[in-house]
Simulated scan of single mutants.
Amino acid sequence: MTSSHPVGAARVVAAVVTFNRIALLRELVDRLREVPGLAEILVVDNASTDGTGDWLAAQAGVGGTPVVGRTLADNLGGAGGFDTGLRWAVDRDADLVWLMDDDGLPDVDTLSRLLEFEGQLDFWGPAVVDKDAPERLVFPIRLPNSARVLTSTTELAAAAPDGLLRDVVIPFNGVLVTRELVERIGSVRAELFIWGDDHEYRLRAERAGARIGTVVDTVVRHPSVGELGTPTLGGTYNHSDSDLKHYCMARNNLLNLAEYRSKLHALAFVAKTVWFYTFTKPSLARLRLSFSAFAAAVRGDFTGHRRFLA
């Protein structure tokens, strides 16, 4: 379906994914209602049990930017939620979809600053900063074709003196996606559930020649996630104490490496996992879980994570 909106009058729809974080969701929706130029706010509720569904139903009569909720029958994870939200927004005639989790908080002018690049980019977003220490990037950025990693807004600004860091974006934290790109490459891979679905979408967009970027003086404020990797072999490994997160990370990372890098990169990841749980953080149980995830990836089986859901 091709949009009928004229150039310069894009219909921008926010698509928010939430799960059992009603306090954060209410704060985010209140903020989004203050954002000028937003046509409507779509909220995908991943079968929350904290009253989110009832609260969303009550938003129908609230004035201002319309809020429309959809509560899923089952928890489909971030991947399934963003797949639902992205398709839903396009079905509702969005020219641009503004994707975000419930724990991010854009500034009121974030959207207007991002829209300054409309027509120049296909998949772009703000810097994601620590809400309690806004000079710090929540998700460090590795510069394209470089070993250099940026951890602060000062470093980010210095790396992009014209205000745009090209070929880098942190999905799905306040990113804009064009309708045309969605029609060209499809939606998010729902079967990935969590971990790596956002990275896979960026890689797919990149492979399709999408124009990607981060607008460095524009922010979404996000709670700190701590250190994202455990030191090992002169680098880091994405260890999590959660069996669910580790299983999805191992399965999905192997798939992404094999698809977008090479089988050699995928095998190197398997070797790194074996080293990590043999020497860095020894755990026979975690080695077994890792190989269960790797086998599922090879088979194309996306059901194994369900045993870890409450």
Rank of each mutant, 00 (worst) to 15 (best):
147 A>M: 05
285 A>N: 13
237 Y>I: 05
127 A>V: 06
86 L>Q: 10
29 V>G: 00
112 S>I: 05
271 A>S: 13
197 D>K: 01
93 D>E: 08
258 A>H: 06
301 D>N: 15
260 Y>E: 00
189 R>F: 10
19 F>H: 11
151 T>Q: 12
184 R>G: 11
190 A>T: 07
61 G>F: 02
247 Y>R: 08
61 G>L: 07
76 L>G: 01
89 A>I: 08
184 R>D: 13
90 V>G: 07
139 F>D: 14
88 W>D: 00
40 E>L: 09
249 M>S: 13
54 D>E: 15
200 E>Q: 15
189 R>S: 14
199 H>E: 15
47 A>W: 10
309 L>I: 15
50 D>M: 01
275 W>K: 08
276 F>H: 09
3 S>P: 02
245 K>P: 02
201 Y>L: 10
116 E>K: 11
69 G>K: 00
199 H>K: 13
286 R>P: 12
152 S>V: 07
64 G>Y: 03
189 R>I: 03
194 I>Q: 02
210 A>I: 02
195 W>E: 12
17 V>N: 02
21 R>D: 14
229 G>Q: 12
66 P>I: 05
21 R>H: 02
99 L>Q: 04
230 T>I: 09
237 Y>S: 04
230 T>C: 04
147 A>W: 03
204 R>P: 05
81 G>Y: 02
65 T>Y: 01
85 G>M: 05
286 R>M: 11
120 Q>T: 13
285 A>G: 10
202 R>W: 06
128 V>K: 03
142 R>C: 08
102 D>V: 13
70 R>Y: 10
79 A>M: 08
76 L>T: 02
23 A>E: 15
164 L>S: 03
66 P>N: 04
204 R>K: 10
133 A>C: 08
114 L>T: 05
128 V>M: 08
306 R>Y: 03
43 V>I: 00
118 E>N: 12
302 F>W: 10
291 F>C: 04
272 K>P: 00
124 W>A: 07
106 P>S: 09
299 R>V: 02
170 I>P: 00
179 R>I: 08
30 D>K: 10
160 A>I: 11
164 L>A: 05
103 D>Y: 10
299 R>S: 10
266 A>H: 00
15 A>E: 01
49 T>E: 12
28 L>R: 02
84 T>G: 01
241 D>P: 03
289 L>N: 05
291 F>K: 00
111 L>T: 01
264 L>C: 04
157 A>R: 06
40 E>D: 02
192 L>Q: 14
163 G>E: 13
197 D>Y: 14
40 E>F: 01
198 D>V: 11
90 V>Y: 04
76 L>V: 06
131 K>S: 08
233 L>N: 13
309 L>C: 12
294 F>L: 07
138 V>C: 11
94 A>M: 05
34 E>R: 00
219 V>H: 06
100 M>D: 12
123 F>Y: 15
110 T>K: 04
122 D>Y: 07
172 F>T: 12
67 V>S: 01
295 A>V: 03
229 G>I: 06
236 T>N: 09
275 W>L: 06
290 S>W: 04
33 R>G: 14
35 V>T: 14
300 G>I: 07
77 G>R: 00
91 D>R: 09
34 E>L: 08
79 A>N: 10
143 L>K: 08
92 R>H: 15
161 P>A: 06
9 A>E: 15
251 R>A: 11
156 L>A: 11
114 L>I: 07
183 E>H: 13
